[in-house]
């Protein structure tokens, strides 16, 4: 490995780790607040909501990397895309764990089963969670090689479905004020629109290679 390449590798590793550490701070704050009476009168509901929000924020952040490259030509965000996606998965796991293990404590199979099947906002949220599991499992470069890039890529398109399901989960959850969830819906729509425009433009230009 040439020295320059080695240094670049070190820098991008530092960037990834930095993003990963930053992304852990909200979880740290939530846990800290939970145990120091900092989450208000209903700490369980607040923790649950905030973990869900951070899942969406990080998932949308991971989906922002490619559009940044398309629009601004930045390449560095692509280096942290996987880290952001894994952090989103970390938060959705916490979100789900708090729902099952704390909010619904003691969890009964009957109640959880009914919740997931009968309440459409939980159905769609659970669906989003399930979709993210294979993506997290196949996130390593070893798995990319094992699956082959084309298949891996096709599989990872599921992230769009998962993000959309996550936003719908939020929209269906609120009682009347759609302002906040619609911000997330708008951001997701914009990110997908940028990809679509770039894809159509490339196809018209006769470039067979799809945007990553």
């Amino acid at each position: 490995m040439a020295a320059a390449e080695k240094e670049a590798g070190g820098k991008s590793r530092l960037l990834k780790r930095g993003v990963g550490l930053l992304a852990m701070i909200p979880a740290g704050v939530i846990v800290f607040r939970f145990f120091t009476d900092g989450l208000g009168a209903n700490p369980i509901a607040t923790a649950l909501n905030q973990l869900g929000l951070w899942t969406l924020i990080l998932l949308l952040a991971s989906l922002t990397c490619t559009p940044l490259k398309i629009v601004l030509g930045w390449k560095w965000p692509l280096k942290v895309r996987k880290m952001l996606g894994l952090c989103a998965f970390f938060y959705v796991c916490l979100h789900f764990a708090v729902y099952i293990g704390v909010d619904q404590f003691p969890p009964t199979v009957d109640e959880i089963y009914k919740d997931i099947l009968k309440r459409k906002f939980i159905t769609v949220g659970f669906f989003a969670f399930l979709l993210l599991i294979p993506l997290a499992i196949t996130s390593s470069s070893k798995m990319v090689k094992r699956l082959g890039f084309t298949r891996w890529k096709r599989l990872h398109r599921l992230v769009y479905v998962a993000a959309a399901a996550g936003v719908v989960h939020f929209i269906w959850r609120v009682k009347a004020d759609l302002f906040e969830p619609l911000i997330y819906a708008g951001v997701l729509a914009l990110l997908l629109a940028i990809r679509l425009v770039a894809h159509l433009r490339d196809r018209r230009a006769g470039v067979a290679k799809p945007v990553s």
Binding site: L21, I25, P26, V31, R33
Partner: peptide
């Protein structure tokens, strides 16, 4: 140790904000 550092940092941020 990294985890502990993140929680310590989060706690510091939180106390400052409060």
């Amino acid at each position: 140790m990294t985890g502990a550092a993140v929680f310590a940092a989060a706690g510091a941020v939180e106390l400052g904000a409060r």
